[in-house]
Structure formats: structure tokens, C-alpha cells
Design a protein around this nucleic acid. Structure first.
Length: 850
RNA sequence: GCCCUCGUGGUGAAAUUGGUAGACACAAAGGACUUAAAAUCCUUGCCGCUUGCGGAGUGCCAGUUCGAGUCUGGCCGAGGGCACCA
């Protein structure tokens, strides 16, 4: 196409501004319940207002926006809201460091980030904006808390926490670095503290069952949740105990009761009640201390050294009353799983095996692999695979574990030695946080620590403002006047713990349905219409906690509730990958950020310092610590929102990590410029007369394009859509060199522009506006038009491709054989050899075996 | 240690139910246009004879099949998850 006339560059700044303003003024994305229309609830995980959006947000919200705009074009009533997960530690830490008010800090961050998000051109109904730290939000949360308290789904119990004795504060696991507090550097203690818990474990089975219905969730997330819930089938067994303590019974949980004849010790958690007899034993205390160092994560237990502390107790094997085995405390037994006591069968459990080796305990084989003889002996490592029971009297010969476990449980129950037991790994959710910047718990205590509910007319419990944060421990605890409360003439003291921020995010999607409802967290009609969320989009890092807590919360609210009944909040889930970037270091091994680099003759230097060469490190997810971040605002400033959207979608499928590159964003920018030039050219056609003898190739190509793009939109293959856009561009570009019918060109071009709208909405709207298109709806394709008359059939000889043959659709085999016989190129491979077999797949290929 | 996912050109990746491997891009090289540069466009996965054609080829080794990137088994490698950050 000759570009003899001057084309004005695409002024993305003016055009993007113009459309964003229009959308705001016209309330384009404001929605209301409309029972005549099919709804679609598109939700992305709301951000924490850290102060600036990052590329991860750009990706997350672009993916969501593509879907929301697509559904909008399809005629759905689309709810696409945005809000702020605005309680949490960062605000408190920032406020402490800079002597600010967390509320002001948070609100100014929100303001800033909101303006940044708007520059991305998202189709969001900002009328529904919510912020979890606003009283308007958390007052409803307090009511939910009390509802759950009423239903006995909230309770108080003592639990171990990481305690920083210098800061007098509870630490999260990640704040403990090498056993020391991240801020104070003091050795962290395990301390028992009375805390609030949500009874999520009550729903273990239901939460597990519910996963089966979530067909539109990624499998890996379901597996992670399944493992987290950790259902295991086994039995509890009572062991008789003798020794110098007043203990005569230990209850153990096991998934392998069938290996009871392989018993060689009993292992207890250091927190088991029997430990009370050792509370003054310095050796035991030393041992306990040692245990706390190894950590309690599954990995630490699996990999770490197994150590024990021998008691003077001996347990009797209930199946074989002569056998007495020692009782140990051991570091690999957890108190909060099962009964904090296990029986050790070293031959068939690797942990027990390691332990037995260390303390010279008997290793008795009771399961053999099926192909081994009965004298099989476990030697170098535990055998925990399938097999057959041996050396176990009445259990011998049973298939382990499928027959033997059930059979053993039957015998145990008959002899009253134990019973069937299903155990879940899922623990109750501790929601107490000893911090200021969170939702206050609407509870008070009297002198005897009895719990009193804050009555309805005294709600909400507001966070006090202008308080001193630079105190030891929880700042709320130092607010003497705030703590005091008088209920019905009684002087009480307020609960000073605040709620885990995961509570806030467990129901925010309900609030979006009726963000201005004053009496309750949501309006039941609104929720009935909008919920569940049709598509939820966010990072996989929330695969377990946030999603599981939300599923629990729906069940908890639904319980005994006539007005609300919803178990699964998220019908569809999509987890997007991270945004990565190369890492850079200067000659002194310091991290260098991409914008501190200049390139001269293909070599990277620190800006303004030719003596300082930059080495390029591996590509990693963007993080401040490695300085490999790129600021979205700068990108939008330089290249525009459409280019940023286009690039963030283009290089990798949304569920995988994507690498941000300068070259990539530049190429997206150029592509939009090219589209613009093409648009101007096509636009100029409107007023020109054209010969009407051209072909209709554009109709078929456009329909094909629409089919591909529709399929790709449906399947989150957004990277392929970008490829489709490149293809259609090349086609149109070439098409303009041929003869074509003007009206046909314009008609199809309109459809193409609309199909671009989810990806590059500003550009699409501007072009459509130029063509004065008012009615904008998703263009459907016509299968009839796409249908081809001929196809390229693949000819294979012995499975090897030897040629292509253009033949009519649905050519019968006999006819094809005739065609092939006349084809010298193909026949030369066959020569005079005998054809053994022919496999003909209609309209695809023929494979000739000779 | 256990569980899950993924291995395709120099790079990011396509390949819808097993049926033309590498669409679409990035980078590099060569070419066209230009006084020149920029911009733009075209060509190029690898090995061989160098129009064209032939061969190998989707981490490695087997298997199923007329046919395997795709299915099965084993191995090697990378990433993620495994209880109080959001």
C-alpha cells in the first residue's frame, strides 16, 4: 500500500484521555440489577493499596477487563467492580516509621492508585468502590462476627504463637528469620495466647466435597485445597501404658493400623499432656527447646533430623500383649494433628525408620512387596508402598493397605481396642491479630474474663484515631480510655485484638453487589441476582487461604439463614502468572533497575558511567528487592494504555509467567501505530468510488478471524488473540492492494474493530467513532461462509509426509485413489511396490503403507 | 521428603478430539528502498548436496499406533505448594 499522503500519528494521549473521560461522564460501566438481562459477574482480586500499581496489577486487571468487555459486547449485564483490601500490616509499619496516621496513608495511596487504574481504561463501575478499612465496610463485618458467634462458629482458645519478647508482639511466620524477630532481632519464643478462632474445621468434609462441583477451577488449585484439608482415613488405638507416672493409657491416631505388629515405639508431641510431668525436668526443657528450632512445617519435619526424649513409660501392643515398647517425646509429632501421639512402625514409615535407626529400636517387617517371599526384610529404607501383610498372625496374607486397614479396624473395634476415625489436617482459623490497623472485634470482657457481646446499638466498634503507634505490643492495648466500655451498667474492657485481614476479603464480593446497603453487609435480592461470581481472576498465591476462607465464610453465613444460601462464591476461577523481568547488577554486584541503564553499541552500562558495565542475570518475577521492576505509570505515559494492555497479553498465555521487555512494549506501540495508518486509509475509502467487480475474500477471512477470536476469548487464550490481530492486519494491508468492494470492506472492517475492543478499547472506540458506528455489539461469525470447497489433503507414504493435494471437500476414497494414480510426484515414491494398506481420514490425510 | 505442574528454534510461544511441528512475535543475519542514516518492507529453524530435493528433529530411553509434541511406563532437569505477608 503506498502511503503517499501524510498520516497523522496516533495521538494515544489525547484519544485515551478523551475516552476515559467519556466513560466516566456517561457512566458507561454503571450497572443495576435487571432481571430481564443475563448477568455476568467478573471479579479480579482487589489490591492492597500499597501506593502504586505494579505490573502484576496491570496484568490481572487487563485480563479481567478483556473478559468483562467481551461479555458486555455480548449483551450481558456485567458487574465489574473494584475496591481496596485496605487493612493490614504495611500501613501500620509505614505509619510507625514515618509518624503518620495509617488511615491517611492508606487513603492517599488509594487515591493515587485509583487514578493509575483509571489510566488503564478499565471497564469498572466505580460507583461500587469499597474499602475494607472504612467504617462503612467493617461495621458489617462486626455483625457477621457476632452472627457467627451466635451460631457457635467463633470461639476462644489458647494457641501457640511466635512471640517477640522485645517488641512484645506476635509475629507471622515470615517475620521470623533464623529464629529471630525481623525487627527486634530478639530470639522468638513460642507462647500460648488466648485467641479467637473460626470453626472452619466443622466444614472440612463439606469444603472437600464442594471442590468436586467446581468444574471451572484450575485443577491444581483444587488439589492444593484438597491436600490442605487433608482428609485421612484410619483409626484411633488405645495403648495401655505402665511406668512411674500416673498414666495408664495413650490414644494414638494412625492411617496404618494394619502395621500394628510392626510396632516398636510410641512417639508423643512435646506439647502432649504427658509433658506436664516433665515441666521441671531441665533435660526435657532443653529437648523441647531443641525441637522448636527444627520448625514445624511439613518440609522441616520430613527433611530434618528426627530426635527423641525417652520417658520411663512402656506401652503394650494391644494385639500382642507380651510386647512392651518404649514411649518417647519426638520432634516429628505435632500436637494439633490427631491426638499428638503416634505409634512407630519403622519398617513402613520413613520418619519412624530414621528414628529407630538413631535410637537402635527394632525394625520389624510386616508388609512385603507382592513379588517378594515371606522372609522379605526391610533394610535401608522404609517400605510404604502396596504389598501383602506378613509376620502379623491373623492379618497375614491381606493386601495392604486396601484390605488390611479395614480388616484391622474391624478387629480393633470388635475387641474394643480402638475404632475407625477420620482425621482432617485442616485446623481452625485463628483470626486474632495483636495489631491496630484491622477490624476491631466487637467483644468485651469483665473482671473474670467472661465474654460479653457488644450490643447492636453500640455498634460499630470504631478504631480510635490519632493514637500512639510507637508502643510495645498492640497499640490498642495502650489506649486506656478506648478500652473502657460500660454495658448495662457494667464496667468492661474491650477486646483489643483485631481481625485477620483475610476476614475482610472473605465477603467483599458480596458487598460489591450492594455497596451502599446500610443495614446489613448486603441486600439479599442483589446478592441473589449477582452471585456467584462467574469469573474470579487473581494470583495463584491465594490458591489456598483466601479462597478456602471465602468458601467457609459463605457456608458460615448460610447456616440457619433463610435469606442467604450460597456455598460456593466463585463459579469460575482463573489464576494468572507473574510478570517477570531480567535482573541487572553493576560491577560492584549491586542490583540495578532497568531505567538506570544505558545501552551503547549493544553493551549495557550504568547511566552516565562507561566504566561500569552491567551484567544481565536471570529473569525473575518483578520485585523491589531485585530492582527489576518497571513502573506502569511510566509505560502508560510513554506508550499508552492500549499498548501496555496489548503487550501484557501478547507474549505468554495468561496462566503462565510473562517476561516484560522493552522490545515487546515498543513493538506493541508500533503495531498500534500501524493499525492507525491502516484505519486512516480505510476511512478514506468511505468517500471514494470503487469498481464493484472485486472478490469477496475479505468476507471469508473476517469470519474466520471472528471465529478464532471468539474461541480464544472463551478459552482465555489471550496471547493468541494478539496473533490474530497481527494476522488480520497483514490481511487487510495486503487486501488494499487488490480490487475489493468498498462496502464489503467497510462492513467487515467494522466487525474487526469491534472484536479488537476488549484488548485495545480506546483505539477501537476511536476508529468506530470515526466510522460513526453507534450500535456496537459482538459480531457473530457465519459457519456457512467459512466453509471451504477445497482442502489441502496431506499425502503420507509410510507415515511420512510426501506431499499436499488440493482436492474437493469430502472427496470419496475411490476418486482420491484415481487422482493419486495420475500424480507422478507421489507415484514415484510408490513405484511398483505393492500397497499394503491405506488409511484415509476424510479432509485430513491419506497414509499409504507400502 | 511428600504433592502438583512444566520441558518444542537464539528467545517468548502456536499446533481445538493422536493426523502438514514451529502460527504470531522478539532478536540476529542477509537483501530491497535511500547519497546516507532512520523508518519501512522481504527472506532465513538445523544438517547435507546448494534452483529443488533429501535427512534428522518437540529433555532422555522404551512402549502402544498406519501415524505420537499430544497417550502409557521409566529416567533426567526446571518451577510451584506443603498453616497466621497480603
Amino acid at each position: 500500500m503506498e502511503m503517499s499522503f501524510e498520516v497523522e500519528r496516533y495521538n494515544f494521549k489525547n484519544i485515551e484521555n478523551k475516552w476515559q473521560k467519556k466513560w466516566e461522564e456517561n457512566q458507561t460501566f454503571a450497572v443495576h440489577v435487571d432481571k430481564n438481562k443475563k448477568k455476568f459477574y467478573c471479579l479480579e482480586m482487589f489490591p492492597y493499596p500499597s501506593g502504586k500499581i505494579h505490573m502484576g496489577h496491570v496484568r490481572n486487571y487487563t485480563i479481567g477487563d478483556v473478559l468483562a468487555r467481551y461479555k458486555l459486547l455480548q449483551g450481558f449485564n456485567v458487574l465489574h467492580p473494584m475496591g481496596w483490601d485496605s487493612f493490614g500490616m504495611p500501613a501500620e509499619n509505614a505509619a510507625k516509621q514515618n509518624k503518620l496516621d495509617p488511615k491517611e496513608w492508606t487513603e492517599s495511596n488509594i487515591k493515587k492508585m485509583k487514578s493509575q487504574l483509571k489510566k488503564l481504561g478499565l471497564s469498572i463501575d466505580w460507583n461500587r468502590e469499597i474499602s475494607t478499612c472504612s467504617e462503612d465496610y467493617y461495621k458489617h463485618q462486626q455483625k457477621f462476627f457476632l452472627e457467627l458467634f451466635e451460631k457457635k462458629l467463633v470461639y476462644r482458645k489458647e494457641n501457640y504463637v511466635n512471640w517477640d519478647p522485645v517488641d512484645e508482639t506476635v509475629l507471622a511466620n515470615e517475620q521470623v528469620i533464623d529464629g529471630r524477630g525481623w525487627r527486634s532481632g530478639a530470639m522468638v519464643e513460642r507462647k500460648k495466647l488466648s485467641q479467637w478462632f473460626f470453626n472452619i474445621s466443622k466444614f472440612s468434609q463439606d469444603l472437600l466435597d464442594g471442590l468436586n462441583k467446581l468444574d471451572n477451577w484450575p485443577n491444581k488449585v483444587k488439589i492444593m485445597q484438597k491436600n490442605w484439608i487433608g482428609k485421612s482415613f484410619g483409626s484411633e488405638i488405645d495403648f495401655e501404658v505402665e511406668g512411674d507416672l500416673s498414666v495408664n493409657k495413650i490414644k494414638c491416631f494412625t492411617t496404618r493400623p494394619d502395621t500394628l505388629f510392626g510396632l516398636s515405639f510410641i512417639a508423643l508431641s512435646v506439647d502432649h499432656e504427658i509433658s506436664k510431668f516433665y515441666k521441671n525436668d531441665t533435660n526435657f526443657l532443653k529437648f523441647k527447646d531443641e525441637c522448636s528450632k527444627t520448625g514445624t512445617t511439613e518440609e522441616a519435619i520430613a527433611v530434618g533430623e528426627k530426635i527423641g526424649f525417652k520417658t520411663n513409660l512402656f506401652a503394650t501392643n494391644p494385639f500382642n500383649r507380651e510386647q512392651k515398647v518404649p514411649v518417647y517425646f519426638a520432634n516429628f509429632v505435632l500436637m494439633d494433628y490427631g491426638f499428638g501421639a503416634v505409634f512407630g512402625c519403622p519398617a513402613h514409615d520413613q520418619r519412624d525408620f530414621d528414628f529407630a535407626k538413631k535410637y537402635n529400636l527394632e525394625i520389624k517387617t510386616v508388609v512385603k512387596p507382592e513379588n517378594e517371599d515371606d522372609d522379605y526384610i526391610v533394610r535401608n529404607e522404609a517400605y510404604s508402598d502396596k504389598g501383602v501383610i506378613i509376620n502379623s498372625e491373623f492379618l497375614n496374607g491381606l493386601k495392604a493397605p486396601e484390605e488390611s486397614v479395614i480388616e484391622t479396624i474391624k478387629i480393633l473395634e470388635k475387641r474394643k481396642l480402638g475404632k475407625k476415625k477420620i482425621n482432617f489436617r485442616l485446623k481452625d482459623w485463628g483470626v486474632s491479630r495483636q495489631r491496630y490497623w484491622g477490624c476491631p472485634i466487637p467483644i468485651a470482657y469483665d473482671k473474670n474474663k467472661n465474654i460479653h457481646v457488644i450490643p447492636d446499638d453500640m455498634l460499630p466498634v470504631k478504631l480510635p484515631q490519632n493514637i500512639n503507634l510507637n508502643v510495645k505490643g498492640n497499640p490498642l492495648d495502650s489506649e486506656k480510655s478506648w478500652k473502657k466500655i460500660n454495658i448495662d451498667g457494667k464496667d468492661l474492657v474491650r477486646e483489643t485484638d483485631t481481625l485477620d485481614t483475610f476476614v475482610c476479603s472473605s465477603w467483599y464480593f458480596l458487598r460489591f453487589c450492594s455497596p451502599h446497603e446500610n443495614d446489613y453487609g448486603f441486600n439479599e435480592d442483589d446478592v441473589k441476582y449477582w452471585m456467584p461470581v462467574d469469573q474470579y481472576i487473581g494470583g495463584v498465591e491465594h490458591a489456598i487461604l483466601h479462597l478456602l476462607y471465602s468458601r467457609f465464610f459463605m457456608r458460615a453465613i448460610s447456616q440457619n439463614n433463610e435469606r442467604f444460601d450460597l456455598t460456593e462464591p466463585f463459579n469460575g476461577l482463573f489464576t494468572q502468572g507473574m510478570v517477570c523481568h531480567e535482573t541487572y547488577k553493576d560491577k560492584d554486584n549491586n542490583w540495578v533497575s532497568p531505567d538506570e541503564i544505558e545501552i551503547v553499541d549493544g553493551i549495557k552500562y550504568l547511566k552516565g558511567d562507561r566504566s561500569n558495565k552491567i551484567t544481565v542475570g536471570p529473569t525473575e518475577s518483578m520485585s523491589k528487592s531485585k530492582k527489576n521492576t518497571v513502573d506502569p505509570e511510566t509505560i502508560i505515559e510513554n506508550y499508552g494504555a492500549d499498548a501496555a494492555r496489548l503487550f501484557i497479553l501478547s507474549d505468554s498465555p495468561p496462566e503462565k509467567d510473562v517476561q516484560w521487555t522493552d522490545e515487546g512494549i515498543v513493538s506493541s506501540f508500533k503495531f498500534i501505530q500501524k493499525l492507525w495508518k491502516l484505519n486512516i486509509k480505510i476511512f478514506s475509502e468511505i468517500n471514494q468510488n470503487h469498481e464493484e467487480d472485486a472478490d469477496d475474500e475479505i468476507v471469508k477471512y473476517t469470519n474466520n478471524f471472528l471465529k478464532k477470536i471468539t474461541n480464544n476469548l472463551e478459552n482465555f487464550s489471550y496471547n493468541k488473540i494478539v496473533a490474530n490481530l497481527h494476522e488480520i492486519y497483514s490481511f487487510l494491508f495486503k487486501q488494499l492492494n487488490h480490487k475489493y468492494k468498498k462496502n464489503t470492506l467497510i462492513e467487515n472492517y467494522k466487525k474487526i474493530l469491534i472484536a479488537m475492543q476488549p484488548i485495545i478499547p480506546h483505539f477501537s472506540n476511536e476508529c468506530l467513532d470515526m466510522l460513526q458506528i453507534k450500535k456496537i455489539e459482538w459480531p457473530n461469525y457465519d459457519e456457512e461462509i467459512i466453509k471451504e470447497d477445497t482442502i489441502n489433503l496431506v499425502i503420507q507414504i509410510n507415515g511420512k509426509k510426501r506431499g499436499l493435494l488440493q482436492i474437493n471437500m469430502d472427496t470419496p476414497e475411490e476418486e482420491l485413489t484415481e487422482i493419486i494414480k495420475k500424480n507422478e510426484k507421489i507415484m514415484k515414491y510408490i513405484e511398483d511396490k505393492k500397497i499394503q494398506k491405506k488409511i484415509y481420514i476424510k479432509n485430513k490425510l491419506i497414509n499409504i503403507i507400502i
